[in-house]
Design a protein around this nucleic acid. Sequence first.
DNA 1: TTTTTATTGTTAATTAATTCACAAATAAAA
DNA 2: TTTTATTTGTGAATTAATTAACAATAAAAA
Lengths: 205, 205
Amino acid sequence: MLANLPPNTVERLSLYRRRLLNFPFEEKPFIHSHQLAHLLKINPAHIRRDLMLMGFSGDVHKGYDIKKLIKKIGQTIDCKQIQKVAFVGVGDLGRAVAAYFNNADSRLKIAATFRLTEEPKTQYADVHCYNISKMKSIIRKEGIELIVLAVPPSFAKEISKTIISSGVKGILNFTSVHLEVPKHIYIEEYDMISKLEKLSYFTNK
Amino acid sequence: MLANLPPNTVERLSLYRRRLLNFPFEEKPFIHSHQLAHLLKINPAHIRRDLMLMGFSGDVHKGYDIKKLIKKIGQTIDCKQIQKVAFVGVGDLGRAVAAYFNNADSRLKIAATFRLTEEPKTQYADVHCYNISKMKSIIRKEGIELIVLAVPPSFAKEISKTIISSGVKGILNFTSVHLEVPKHIYIEEYDMISKLEKLSYFTNK
DNA sequence: TTTTTATTGTTAATTAATTCACAAATAAAA
DNA sequence: TTTTATTTGTGAATTAATTAACAATAAAAA
Ligand SMILES: NC(=O)c1ccc[n+]([C@@H]2O[C@H](COP(=O)([O-])OP(=O)(O)OC[C@H]3O[C@@H](n4cnc5c(N)ncnc54)[C@H](O)[C@@H]3O)[C@@H](O)[C@H]2O)c1
Ligand SMILES: NC(=O)c1ccc[n+]([C@@H]2O[C@H](COP(=O)([O-])OP(=O)(O)OC[C@H]3O[C@@H](n4cnc5c(N)ncnc54)[C@H](O)[C@@H]3O)[C@@H](O)[C@H]2O)c1
């Protein structure tokens, strides 16, 4: 359980949980590996293997107890205490992610959002939206460890420097800008266009 | 070049292109594998291998000619003719992706967007925004092949049925809902929260 | 009761992805 | 001219991810 899980397993466990939370488990409290696999379009052996890595067991006939599984995934991948997240840049993308995030059950908590001006709104995702100039002090005061960065590309580099010097542990970078970060900061990037272009390539054979 | 490239290579080639398009190649027309690798935080051998798979060669001392490389990536991963894309759901997320998309250079073209009502705006990303009721006929009339789906979860299943029956080839599904699609339709899903939860897991060791 | 059927847990096998390592090439330095 | 230093291109090695396979189990059917 405390063993180091492979990155892909961690990501899948998170996906299993989200799907299961949307599953009518009050009526159907158990699920088989092939059923969950079907929902996620992956191989059933994958699921059994991932759950095994967590040390989670199902019933050989009933399958997996969904409530227990959701709980176990939490114990495995969630941090022990609440870990605070800030959104830097709350335009279309930041707002979409923040809203989506607020529905998700986990031990991550949005503690602040930052943008250039405080107007016209001072709250997003039920937390205060501060002017970017207050970012460093608030990250420190609140003990924010994770950042979702979604500012316009032209500001990304400059803002990332402030973020890094505030002592965060991880950044999910949505800007397409290369950020120079020290090794102890974990950075994850994502590009939706590359997904679309991949889709295009493979639909054209 | 027409060889089947590994999925991860296709995705990376797209990323290389986006980074290179943001690179000042008018002043610095060549780039070395280790420089590009640094920008993308990957291994230089990775880059050399991916370019080799495309059949692209660099100069052993100057490195890779950036303009030529961008062109070669296009010839390799872009479709031959323009391939049309529609955005179904143009809320925060759909708008963010559509706007980002419009900056990106490729042979994909947003041909229409759809949402529940036509008000208050009838254009997004410079194309007309139609009422969802017109989706099927417009997908067919325009020959739209790819869909970016970003509607509220409660509508996703129903809307996906219409999309499928319209004869598209691929769907990039941002809703967290399981969609039943026939095998000949390529579907790609993405979940930002699982990325954040992964970030959380690995920043906590 | 016995047989059939289905599913888990797990090891082994396979496949895919990544990285290493180095020959070949050649510009720049000595 | 000769040496040194780099960097590409690529096969080989390694590592990670995925899938197959099946013994063990026990419910359900016969
Ligand atoms: N990776 C992807 O797939 C992807 C997809 C869409 C958008 N993007 C990128 O995400 C970023 C945000 O996109 P968007 O559509 O939400 O943009 P947007 O213009 O709607 O929002 C930008 C946000 O950043 C804030 N901001 C602007 N300047 C700032 C500053 N100096 N300091 C702090 N905050 C500032 C604005 O107040 C606003 O909240 C862009 O960089 C865009 O290119 C990436
Ligand atoms: N995968 C992820 O990481 C991720 C992240 C954020 C949001 N999401 C999901 O993406 C979707 C969109 O999120 P959002 O924040 O943009 O939501 P939103 O409410 O801002 O936008 C929804 C859009 O869908 C349109 N719509 C509503 N009902 C419709 C119908 N019946 N037919 C056609 N269009 C309809 C609306 O007009 C609007 O344009 C949601 O399902 C959300 O859960 C996923």
